[in-house]
């Protein structure tokens, strides 16, 4: 049993999924250079991430383990995540049709976000309890939201800058992400 606080802080900073474990990098570049869109996408992903980690944990503990079906873990988690994402899509469409249209293709893409599956699998590998899993997922979700919004804010500024021609577009974004990653690597040693 890992202590709760280091687990949470570790998932947010030291083991940040996007910048130190390089999971879920695609939405980092796909979320666009608008801070408000990135914010909405990050919140939706964070919600799915926490929910799916908890649901995966329950499925594994009460269905897969008792029936000795651990080999189904990966595919069961994927199906679960896909279902949750679809449910969240319906919810967003009902709550805010404008946001649903703005996010568009990025909503179903949460399904293939490696961070979502990664958190569920890593939590299961570390044999965390349900409480610890939720905490770990919350930390990962918070870290993901933090990085996505920070990166979108940076991109908003980058759009205003006079970037040298060969670096314009994707190259300068990759360089920026690399520098952010370096900064996050500096947290190594904090948390578990």
């Amino acid at each position: 049993m890992v202590d709760a606080f280091p687990l949470l802080i570790g998932a947010v900073l030291a083991n940040n999924f996007v910048l130190t474990q390089f999971l879920g990098v695609c939405p980092l570049f796909g979320a666009g250079s608008r801070l408000d869109n990135a914010w909405a996408l990050a919140l939706a992903t964070a919600f799915v991430l926490t929910l799916s980690a908890a649901a995966s944990h329950l499925i594994e503990r009460f269905v897969l383990l008792p029936l000795d079906l651990e080999y189904l873990r990966l595919v069961a988690f994927i199906v679960l995540i896909a279902g949750l994402v679809q449910g969240v899509t319906f919810a967003i469409r009902a709550i805010d049709p404008v946001l649903h249209q703005v996010l568009g293709i990025y909503l179903p893409l949460i399904t293939t976000n490696c961070a979502v599956l990664g958190v569920a699998l890593l939590a299961s590998n570390r044999h965390l309890s349900l409480f610890a899993t939720i905490l770990y997922a919350l930390g990962a979700a918070f870290g993901f939201t933090l990085v996505i919004t920070m990166f979108a804010a940076l991109r908003e500024r980058l759009d205003e800058q006079r970037v040298p021609a060969p670096f314009r577009g994707a190259p300068i974004q990759l360089v920026t992400a690399g520098l952010m990653s370096l900064a996050f690597m500096g947290f190594k040693g904090i948390g578990g």
């Binding site: 897969l64 069961a76 679809q86």
Partner: peptide
Amino acid sequence: GISVFALLTVVLGGAL
């Protein structure tokens, strides 16, 4: 395994 997986997908589909 097959039946558990089928049940899982059917339950999820119904819920959706």
